[in-house]
Write a protein that binds this DNA or RNA. Structure first.
Length: 884
RNA sequence: GCCCAGGUGGCGGAAUCGGUAGACGCAGCGGAUUCAAAAUCCGCCGCCGCAAGGUGUGGGGGUUCGAGUCCCCCCCUGGGCACCA
């Protein structure tokens, strides 16, 4: 099969200690004519392993570059999203290594989480065993991709030597009051008797039992992230290296709003009903007050009102997900209670509304139907009064239909508002707030949408919360010397509650304070906690403390790369955790990630068949082909329906297995295709024929180098007379170096960097000279292309470098400014903005000269029909526009 | 529902600061090579039109000498919405 001469020489055995010699061996053997990715990649990867080529030095003279890709959840095998994410990171890591940086690119495993429990239920395997075997498999796959990872820093969050430090920090924060306990609402499956994650609630029912889900209040531990809300918001301004859209999303999520907190007296009682509003200027238009179903006032009113009690019970059905809350039909019911308007003394009804969130503000809102769209709809539905208190010049108000200007605080002034009439938004808010303060019924207040972070999970496969419950001492944090609280790994969950509750050896313990028999907390932590600090632990994975000085040497991360789906939660929690660690003296920086690249999803076509009951069966695109314009399944040749292009997923069975791709074409082809098909931030559509194209280019690159090497390698061009063809090729080479450097370094857009190298290779293929100077130019082009592509397709480039320049390491090429100079340039000619022709002018020509040359040209004469120009626009280096 | 993106040939995409729309690749078509095929190489390739030319970046309007790019409105697709990670 491998018919070339090299087949007869002993294969380099790179796994023996003489790996470096084996690497050099390649350079002195005859070059293979055929591109054999499997051999090349095996050889290169063995050499990297033997020479510890990607080890990051904790101490070095070079500048540091910490390149981090979001670590994977060990789901079983690598998917294309991983390949994309890690190749992007690898390109940046290898590029910086070539530019002389001391690069750290670590890898680890976000190993706790729900899928392991689901797998356990399905296959009767302990989550721990399942997870560890997945990790072993996926580590092998990552190595086969040829990533420049320092594997000595590998960590897995499910290992006690990792999570013990998380538990340690938890106890510190608990004692400091940064972590506290309160009641919170969860999805409760009354049949399985278990708490459900939002994704386990489908159309209001439990995914396994099918039972109607209920909301239930349980005690939970919370991180006081709201205490850091302002810093998390202003900190965004210190992150110029983050995408604007991510910062906008985070800012909106934190949701700082300045407004007024004010109180209505509850009629016939001393009680005050507090509400928060950003529209105090509309206070005179309040026609009712709405409270959340969980509000104490609602509960009290329901005691003597069975109808209301039934309504509140109805509100407690369904999931707690905010998307569900916001899309459901707005419903409400009068409590019969009245609230006294703080300024007018008027009595307005108090309603319960299913759209009022208990978790925001005080769980109650003042309703101004005339100037809030949601209140407007609600008032119309229930026949509540609508009172206009804001007017805009020239606009007529109608209570029958909502108009955009009703809610616009920029345009209107107060009307029907007594002494506040004529005041614009800011003045009205101030005047009304002052009056409320004077009455003791209000205050100016800054409110955040952000809520405290509840981290208790009623699940087994997570980091145990290090708390012991003692009848006399209460909630006692586990002392440092008793950590870690180790999670038993031989447990198989069955889907009905947390199995830790049934593990007597885990639950029963002595109170750390008084020694009396006590119960260990069985809730585990949200897995977002582990992923909030792993980036710091990579710097010192062996430290016998949470972090040591090396963390500060490496942090902040220079480049973080991960999916856009993490724009808010993970990235906000990690930023918050970094500040917690800073305040504990563990790190000195304020932000964990200096530059952020959010990569798009990998998507593919979907195909399905629907049976009589409407159940869909999904077919993998690999098993579908187009025959006579109809998509058919290759195994039974029956037609399937095209279901659109969607994110690769198990449920739609449209995943492409990267392993098959690597086995067939090699890692370099997989890497090249994923980098070429789309820029990193966009979604990437999978295409089998695109993969063929990527492989074809690598074969061409190999062939061009082979042909050149066969005729004998020479020194790259360093000077000497060039003919026009050679000059033009060198100009293109240097333009390419300039562009590719900018594409990788600043734009982080690799598809255009690859395209530029393809163009250069196309130009090289047309370049014919075989004299000494031409051969030197060809050598220069090939060496440069190999260097520029090395971060993207490292295996083939290392092999080609060994042939083109034996013994020399890959160095990023620099631009020869002199090669860029041109004598003549081509300008486009437009007449009245329409393209009419081109003109060649000396590169040195000034605007006046260009204008004169253009006006004299046949093109202009023809299209202006001799009319004198009204205006001439000259854009240097681009075009001339004649306006007549 | 709310927040954030995106929409360009048959397809993936390019056009970086308002200045040649469609680079590069895929698919397709024509040719060379081959007993034949694969592979490879050369050429063509937005749409309408014989051509001159016209037209064209989701739809509608606007700013400008000039708009894929800026502004306003609308439509569609995707991401996130706090227990998927």
């Amino acid at each position: 099969m491998r018919q070339t001469a090299a087949g007869s020489v002993p294969a380099p055995n790179a796994s023996r200690p003489g790996g470096i010699i084996a690497g050099l061996f390649c350079a002195v053997s005859a070059m293979q004519e055929k591109y054999l990715p499997q051999d090349i990649e095996r050889h290169a990867q063995a050499r990297w392993a033997d020479t510890a080529a990607h080890r990051a030095a904790d101490v070095s003279d070079k500048p540091r570059y910490y390149c981090l890709s979001m670590f994977p959840y060990p789901s079983g095998k690598l998917h294309m999203g991983h390949v994309r994410n890690y190749t992007i990171g690898d390109v940046l890591a290898r590029y910086h290594a070539m530019r002389g940086f001391n690069v750290m690119q670590p890898m680890g495993w976000d190993a706790f989480g729900l899928p392991a429990e689901n797998a356990a239920i399905a296959n009767n395997v302990p989550p721990a065993a399942w997870t560890y075997s997945n990790i072993d498999h996926m580590r092998g796959q990552l190595k086969a991709l040829g990533l420049a990872i320092d594997w000595e820093r590998e960590l897995a969050t499910c290992k006690p030597d990792y999570y013990r430090w998380e538990q340690w920090l938890f106890t510190r924060l608990f004692e400091k009051g940064v972590i506290y306990k309160k009641m919170a609402t969860v999805n409760w499956d009354p049949v399985d008797q278990t708490v459900l994650a939002n994704e386990q609630v489908i159309d209001g029912r439990g995914w396994r039992s099918g039972a109607l889900v209920e909301k239930r209040e349980i005690p939970m531990y919370f991180f006081r992230i709201t205490q850091y809300a302002d810093e998390l918001l202003t900190g965004l301004d210190t992150l110029p290296g983050w995408p604007e859209r991510v910062k906008t999303m985070q800012a909106n999520w934190i949701g700082k709003s300045v407004g007024v907190r004010l109180a209505f007296k509850v009629a016939a009682s001393d009680e005050l009903l507090w509400v928060f509003t950003t529209r105090a200027d509309t206070l005179m238009g309040v026609t009712f007050v709405a409270v959340a179903a969980e509000h104490p006032l609602a509960a009290r009113a329901a005691e003597s009102n069975p109808g209301l009690a039934a309504f509140i019970a109805e509100c407690k059905q369904g999931s707690v997900a905010e998307a569900d809350m916001a899309t459901m039909e707005k419903k409400g019911m009068d409590t019969g209670l009245k609230a006294i308007h703080p300024l007018t003394g008027e009595a307005v009804p108090v309603w319960v509304g299913n759209y009022v969130l208990m978790s925001y503000g005080d769980g109650a809102v003042m309703a101004v139907p005339a100037h809030d769209e949601r209140d407007f709809g609600f008032a119309q539905k229930y026949g509540l009064p609508i009172k206009q208190v804001i007017g805009v010049e020239g606009e007529a108000f109608s209570a029958d239909a909502w108009a955009e200007w009703y809610g616009d605080k920029q345009r209107g002034v107060c009307v029907n508002s007594g002494k506040y009439d004529g005041l614009a938004y800011a003045d009205a808010v101030n005047a009304i707030a002052d009056d409320l303060v004077a009455l003791g019924l209000g205050e100016k207040k800054t409110q955040f949408r952000l809520r405290d972070w509840g981290i208790s999970r009623q699940r087994y496969w997570g980091c145990p919360i290090p708390i012991v419950h003692c009848d006399t001492c209460g909630d006692v944090p586990v002392p440092a010397e008793q950590l870690p609280v180790v999670l038993p790994e031989d447990v198989v969950p069955d889907g009905a509650g947390n199995p830790l509750n049934r593990r007597a050896d885990f639950v029963h313990c002595a109170c750390p304070k008084c020694g009396a028999p006590a119960r260990r907390e069985t809730d585990t932590m949200d897995t977002f906690v582990e992923s909030s600090w792993y980036y710091a632990r990579y710097a010192c994975p062996d430290a016998n403390q949470m972090l040591d000085a090396r963390a500060n040497d490496w942090l902040p991360v220079d480049q973080y790369i991960g999916g856009i789906e993490h724009a808010i939660l993970h990235l906000l929690y990690a930023r918050f955790f970094h500040k917690l660690m800073r305040d504990e003296g563990l790190v000195t920086s304020d932000e964990p990630f200096k530059n952020l690249l959010t990569q798009g999803m990998v998507i593919a076509e979907t195909f399905y068949r629907e049976d009589a009951s409407g159940k869909k069966t999904w077919f993998n695109p690999a098993d579908v082909e187009l025959r006579d314009g109809v998509h058919v399944c290759t195994t039974d040749t029956q037609p399937v329906t095209h279901g659109g292009t969607e994110k690769m997923s198990k449920s739609k069975n449209n995943g492409v297995d990267p392993q098959a791709l690597i086995d067939q074409y090699g890692a370099d082809t997989a890497r090249l295709f994923t980098m070429f098909a789309a820029p990193p931030e966009q979604s990437l559509e999978w295409s089998d024929s695109g993969v063929e194209g990527a492989n074809r280019f690598l074969r061409k690159l190999w062939k061009a180098s082979f042909d050149h090497v066969q005729a004998g390698v020479v020194a790259a061009y360093a000077g000497g007379e060039l003919d026009d063809a050679a000059k033009s090729l060198r100009r293109q080479l240097n333009h390419t170096i300039q562009k590719v450097t900018d594409d990788i370094e600043r734009r982080k857009q690799f598809n255009t960097a690859i395209a530029a190298n393809m163009e250069l290779m196309n130009a090289l293929a047309k370049f014919e000279g075989s004299d000494a100077v031409s051969r030197a130019v060809r050598q220069e082009v090939l060496e440069s292309v190999v260097a520029m592509l090395a971060p993207i397709v490292p295996h083939i480039c290392e092999a080609l470098q060994a042939e083109l320049k034996p013994g020399a390491s890959l160095v990023w090429p620099t631009v020869d400014e002199a090669a860029l100079v041109q004598d003549e340039i081509e300008l486009m000619i437009q007449v009245n903005g329409k393209l009419r022709g081109q003109i060649r002018v000396p590169a040195s020509a000034d605007k006046a000269a260009i204008e004169a040359l253009t006006l004299a040209s046949d093109t202009v004469q023809k299209h202006t029909e001799g009319k004198p120009p009204k205006k001439v626009v000259v854009v240097p280096g681009r075009l001339v526009n004649i306006v007549v």
